[in-house]
Design a binder for these strands. Structure first.
Lengths: 210, 210
DNA sequence: AGCCTTTCGCTACAGGTCGTAGCGTAACTC
DNA sequence: GAGTTACGCTACGACCTGTAGCGAAAGGCT
């Protein structure tokens, strides 16, 4: 989860687990207080009651530390079966939006993604600990909708995968763009429009008034 | 466009226009070579053949400089009438994706958006010089589709505005997420699926195979 | 022409951050 | 106890930020 140099050796003094959690907690607190750009390794070390060198023994740089600190928040995401595709979509979107509204994730997520465009290991770390965790929700939602008969069953497996990827990018991208770029609230009304668009297309959402 | 302290006084030595363009060009070059995080004001000044103090006289910090440097690239976006809603969507999405594939924008866009979550003036600058420029394309596209009869005409004006906002967030968000988060190519096949989803909904895209 | 105003390039600087090295000590295994 | 690894601490060079002060350049105005 954390260190890249964890050469799980059975000898020597073991790494403090408490230090791990304290550092990640301190990182989130620093994100809230200072934001991404003004967060420094020294500050996090001070908050966590840990030497700065200890941070560098576990994380190579600020980016990887912040990814791990934020990633655990995505564990909360769940997809209870609410009985219909639209209800499932709206619920998970609201959950995701609530996560994005938190000041820790708000300032950190885009920053690390920006860094990942020039840092392949960081991109992989984000994918494994954040993106894939969200993507599972799409797979589950589609499977349920097919079982209910709301969506046609699978044909070509490659088509299915491409469609899942598309839906994921559309939903996650729309929420992120709404929350961080447009900087408008992701409320029930907006989510209702989004799910109407996804299920019925542009024609459906345009006549949503009546 | 650039300086916040441009007290357009008619007296004194005028600011060099060439310096402006040289600085913005140097900024884009530095973004390509170094990426967002390693770009420094001193480096840009050196590339532009300009003193570092000249940069600070025109832009308060790195964020605002990069926004202006990248914003001009979004002037290229156009929306020729291709005869159908789907064709219009696919064309503008491919254009937008090509812009995001460029290394300058790839590394800079997400970074400045991340900064803007804690910097209201920067957010406004981004909105005015980048976001609104894209949004106009959505308005034009919808108007044309209505004239063609592909979409129902307007009823409640507030509903119309909310729908435009939604469509914009969905399209722009999906492309950004695909290109930067999923890090997968935005090619003709993906765009075709996206436009099918937008026009016909989830059911339509699932049966796109035949 | 001469004066005034503003920008320019240059140098220097204080303040802060990064990431590492070296040290003595603490904790755990065999 | 011996060996091994993590820890806290201090110090450090390298780098970037953003500002200040200087003399010179480039315009407008009378």
């Amino acid at each position: 989860m954390c260190s890249r140099t964890s050469r799980n050796s059975r000898t020597g003094r073991p790494r403090s687990i408490e230090a791990d959690t304290a550092i990640l907690e301190a990182t989130r607190a620093a994100l809230v207080d200072l934001g991404w750009s003004k967060l420094t390794m020294g500050d996090v070390a001070g908050r966590a009651g840990v030497a700065k060198t200890t941070l560098y023994r576990r994380w190579a740089n600020k980016n990887e530390l912040v990814v791990d600190a934020v990633a655990v928040l995505f564990d909360e995401l769940e997809l209870p079966d609410l009985g219909s595709l639209r209800a499932d979509i709206e619920h998970v979107v609201l959950q995701f939006a609530a996560l994005l509204e938190r000041p820790e994730t708000k300032t950190a997520l885009m920053a690390v993604v920006a860094e990942s465009t020039r840092d392949a290991p960081l991109r992989e770390r984000i994918r494994a600990s954040i993106v894939d965790r969200q993507k599972r929700l799409v797979l589950d939602g589609r499977r349920r909708a097919q079982q209910r008969g709301e969506l046609p069953s699978d044909r070509d497996p490659t088509t299915v995968e491409a469609t899942d990827d598309l839906i994921f990018d559309v939903i996650a991208g729309a929420v992120v763009h709404r929350a961080l770029v447009s900087a408008e609230p992701v409320d029930g009304q907006w989510v209702a429009r989004l799910s109407a668009l996804l299920v019925g297309g542009l024609g459906a959402v345009a006549t949503l008034g009546e």
